[in-house]
Nucleic acid binder design. Structure first.
Length: 565
RNA sequence: GCCCCCAUAGCUCAAUUGGAUAGAGCAUCUCCUUCCUAAGGAGAGGGUUGCAUGUUCGAUUCAUGCUGGGGGCACCA
């Protein structure tokens, strides 16, 4: 429906430009969407204001001229019932009720595909997120990154991108050695040997448990008789395997899927780091100073140039990371999105710089921060500290409040904003809980459909209304609540595109709340199943279209869609 | 000291690439159920969008400065 209006407007604008001898600049665009105030019509357009910039004429006069042209050459088959000039230059379109409602038939026809678009045009996107070092269980912070990244992956797929998700596994650095040494120290301690615990070692109980596992399930006290170097290495490998197992288990429980776990180690094995630095050098962004190798990241807006190879001959963290991103480029991904914790804030400019050198245009690079979460219990913040080993793990969270609430709370705010997570609210199965508000709407519709099927007046079932959808009289859905709900449902795809463009899944969560609110409002104002069979049919169609949007939307958020509550 | 982010109702947050009278939820108060799930709905109160200047037909949105809060400034990862 919107497309039809767009075509009409485009034709008139073309016509107008010819009479004015005006040429539209590149990237010229205008808005066409339902206005906040439904009194302003079903679709509102700001084209006159935009044209004013080009032709330097008054918006109101332009709009008046456009209206004149519109009336002069009315498009055949136009769904527009009335056009109105208002607010100093807005052109408002009022659609015929029966045309407005055709979106409901569209929703039924497309069903699980309703909301899909080709916005991404098949672009190959690679999403990297979580990428937690396997030095402990996943934390709440990782959980939010997981939820945001996974939702975005689902949304990008739905909006026409070829999406690949990856977890970058730092299995080669100093923290790995520290983990190995920590486990080795606990191993010795458990066997009654004297051994000081490493100064910056990992204090958490899980380290001791891993050491105990090695003793009980694998080696008994055998490691003591091996060369220390080998024993430590064994501890490290065992710990990584164990921790990654637990991490993957958490992610699976959270319904977060990764297509690939990319090991940092493999970069060294393939000499990929040398290769990457050679590329930088070839492009002229590498230089030597004070015995170290530097990347000239300041050419791309970084504060200072960055060392990639220390004077000791070791690589910094940045070097393999550049190699990793070169691999993304060489594997053909033309859009990349990374989600990191706030501690990586200052690291963004240098990696963006690197990605640009490697060949990515700036607009294809989306490196974003997912801010921290503070848990609240009884109005008080819950203390979390990884250092002391007393953190609240992601597992504890989703086991306490459930995966649905966990995922929803994690994505319901813009990811760059700090999140307050009210544990009591998330567990409460009540009106105050936003995730239940959505699920309740879905369950209500399911229940409504069941009721309709066994209704005394024998109205058509929802399934039946689908097959006979063409016979539904859409004009009957004329109340403001019904129009509002229809308008809301028709915007599903717009919001998904917006979420894709900004890489912000919270926009979908926000939209679904609108859908649920519109439905609840409609439901409480109008009885769906009545003696009036035609009206019942139309309203059931509307309810079922709402169900489809809610289901598709919740699916994209990775949240279940209960039939009963 | 330098750089980045944030500042909207008492609280938590929205406001569609700059659009019409800045909206929800919570909290406070009032009301709605012989009838499809009241886990819902209707209404009231609550705002100089931190301050100032500028750009614009139009600014919560953009620019500059200031105030207040958070984070970052490694040959760490």
């Amino acid at each position: 429906m919107k497309n039809k209006i767009e075509n009409i407007i485009d034709a008139v604008v073309k016509n107008y430009c010819e009479t004015q001898n005006a040429v539209l600049p590149d990237g010229f665009s205008y808005d066409l969407h339902p206005p906040k105030d439904s009194q302003h019509g079903d679709l509102s357009c700001n084209i006159a204001f935009k044209l004013a910039k080009v032709t330097r004429q008054k918006p109101f006069e332009i709009a008046a001229e456009l209206m004149r042209l519109l009336e002069q050459k009315p498009a055949k088959d136009s769904p527009v019932a009335k056009t109105e000039l208002a607010g100093g230059g807005f052109i408002n379109f009022f659609l015929r009720k029966e045309d407005l409602g055709t979106v409901l038939l569209e929703i039924h026809k497309q069903d699980k595909n309703y909301g899909r678009s080709d916005f991404g045009k098949g672009k190959k996107a690679i999403l990297e997120f979580v990428s937690a070092n396997p030095t402990g269980p996943l934390t709440i912070a990782h959980g939010r990154q997981a939820a945001v990244g996974d939702c975005l992956a689902r949304i990008l797929k739905f909006t026409g991108h070829a999406v690949h998700t990856e977890y970058y596994l730092n299995d080669a650095g100093r923290q790995m050695r520290m983990l190995a040494q920590s486990v080795w120290a606990r191993y010795n301690e458990l066997l009654g040997m004297e051994m000081p615990f490493p100064e910056d070692g990992y204090q958490g109980d899980y380290v001791r448990e891993i050491a105990r596992d090695i003793i009980e399930k694998e080696k008994k006290d055998g490691l003591l008789r091996e060369p220390e170097e080998k024993a430590v290495e064994y501890c490290g490998l065992y710990a990584v395997k164990h921790l990654m197992g637990s991490i993957e288990e958490d992610l699976a429980k959270m319904r977060v899927h990764f297509d690939h776990y990319f090991s940092e180690k493999t970069l060294y094995a393939k000499k990929a780091v040398e290769h990457a630095l050679a590329v930088l050098k070839e492009k002229g962004y590498l230089y030597e100073s004070e015995g170290a190798l530097w990347f000239r990241s300041t050419d791309f807006g970084d504060d200072k140039d960055r060392v990639v190879k220390k004077s000791t001959g070791e690589y910094t963290y940045l070097a393999p990371d550049i190699a990793y991103h070169l691999s993304k480029y060489e594997r053909g991904y033309n859009m990349l999105a990374n989600f990191w914790g706030p501690d990586h804030h200052g690291y963004i400019p240098r990696l963006k710089a690197a990605c640009q050198v490697l060949g990515y245009p700036p607009e294809a690079i989306h490196i974003g921060i997912v801010q921290l979460t503070t848990l609240f219990r009884k109005g008080q913040p819950v203390r979390m500290s990884t250092r002391a080993g007393e953190f609240v793990s992601l597992r504890e969270l989703y086991e306490e409040v459930g995966v649905d609430a966990t995922r929803f709370f994690f994505v319901m705010r813009r990811q760059e904003s700090h999140l307050d997570f009210d544990l009591d609210l998330a567990k409460e199965q009540s009106q105050e809980n936003p995730v239940f508000y959505l699920q309740y709407a879905h369950a209500r519709i399911a229940s409504l459909a069941k009721y309709a099927e066994q209704g005394i007046t024998a109205p058509p079932s929802v399934a039946g209304s689908r097959s006979k959808a063409g016979k539904v009289d859409l004009k009957l859905l004329a109340s403001s609540e019904e129009s509002e709900l229809i308008g809301c449902l028709s915007q599903f795809s717009d919001y998904l595109i917006q979420a894709s463009r900004t890489t912000e899944p919270y926009r979908l969560a926000d939209y679904l709340r609108q859908v649920a609110a519109c439905f609840h409002k409609f439901y409480s104002h109008h009885r769906v199943v009545t003696e009036d069979k035609e009206l019942t049919k139309a309203r059931l169609l509307l309810a079922d279209a709402t169900r489809i949007v809610l289901r598709n939307g919740l699916e994209l958020l990775g949240i279940s869609q209960p039939e009963t509550m």
